[in-house]
Write a protein that binds this DNA or RNA. Structure first.
Lengths: 136, 136, 136, 136
DNA sequence: GTGGTCTAGACCACC
DNA sequence: GTGGTCTAGACCACG
């Protein structure tokens, strides 16, 4: 699971964590019963306080999204099924629209915008590969 | 201009306002020189405090998006501060990255993602045309 | 009576007006029964709204410092006697202290400070003479 | 550090705080590197809201008078931003002018005014010496 | 415990 | 009526 925080957005960090865990569960990237990252390593990787991660996990447990087993870890609860493709597309569209509006506001043409999108996709795939290698 | 707030998103209300004013400006729904809604009526309509609207407008002014005249009102500025191309690209990249990450979380493939981007670009261009026609 | 406003101090203009009229009354510069400047010319001279002057005068009347006679003007009430020299000196000391602290903060030496004071006193006397000539 | 507020003066509380911290720094009562009172206890002691103190400290930081470390505290900065001599003189002139105007209102003669200035300078120098001795 | 931010209410100056 | 400012309360992130 890949977590990416935006410290400048004004959105509390723990809410960003919650949202991204939910998204991973919604997409099926995180399977029911699968373990979430442990609090301490995750906090170190993201350069945030352990309390912040703990708070997000606690909130997720109170919402029934995950189940915590003391001393063992935190696992995705069972009663979650991957969302329909249509729903996922609608969720994603919000993010795409924000980028499109910003592009227009910054007077970036459609073709420039599309090539930027392609560029970031490639960059992202490359980073993923690097992370995967590191975790082997 | 149509403003729609989401009080449960965790995104500060004043940031949502800023985004939507920018979107309206980018889409042509709000024309250069045109007056934005006055602070008090807008705050009442949205059921929020006047200061929240005032803060959004103040931030928009400091970004050069609008020009405010005390006692008169707040108007959309003409020139969208022509920043250097590199700077604009970097600003835009943040939005694109957020969408890319979300696509990955929701396990949407690159090709599906690109076609969604194209779809939203087309939709946006269409809205622009409609607004232009309306303002003639 | 010389009024000097500071638009950057954060103190409301009408409060500055009130304070300065009171100071003039306290010092004896304004005698009981003497007329205050008319609202309209004073507002023009100070480049502020007539309402602001009117508000200050209304507040002064409600405090019993002045008495307004509709259509005639605004006059200093009778029950005010000039303050003792010691009291005036103490009031003035507050302003002097603020300047002294600022001088030290800006690392201006005592001798430089004293020559600045002398310079401003001269400038002030000169302006007064100019204004007096204009009003003849 | 002794803070004394005047709630009836019309001067915003946060500005009074700024002035008094500057005065303490200028007089030597507060040494470079020394911690200012923490926001919460100070607010309670003065019976004002925490945000009012926070605003004063934030403004002091933007002026370069203090340096604040989130989660640690707020400390007096070392170098009082050596501005150009001309700029400093102009800033100081505002304070001097306010005192000069007040002297005129209170009908204090120039010579009396100058001797008062000298008196306060001496008093201030004496305080500085006392504070220096105390901090040895 | 520390400082920082978002939202709110009341008041100010100006037209 | 317009926008602007000061003060406040609640919540957040961090140590």
């Amino acid at each position: 699971m890949r977590i990416q925080l935006n410290f400048k957005s004004g959105t509390p960090v723990y809410l960003q964590l919650i949202e991204q865990v939910k998204a991973a569960a919604a997409s099926g990237a995180l399977q029911p019963g699968e373990a979430l990252p442990s609090i301490r390593p995750l906090a170190e990787e993201l350069r945030i306080n352990r309390n912040t991660v703990a708070k997000a996990y606690a909130e997720l447990e109170s919402q029934g999204v995950v189940e915590t087993q003391a001393g063992k870890g935190c696992f995705l609860a069972n009663n979650h099924s991957p969302l329909k493709k249509e729903v996922r597309k609608r969720m994603l569209a919000e993010y795409v629209d924000a980028a499109v509006v910003q592009a227009h506001h910054l007077q970036v043409s459609d073709s420039e915008f599309l090539s930027l999108v392609q560029e970031r996709l490639n960059l992202f795939a490359q980073q993923n590969k690097t992370n995967a290698a590191k975790n082997e």
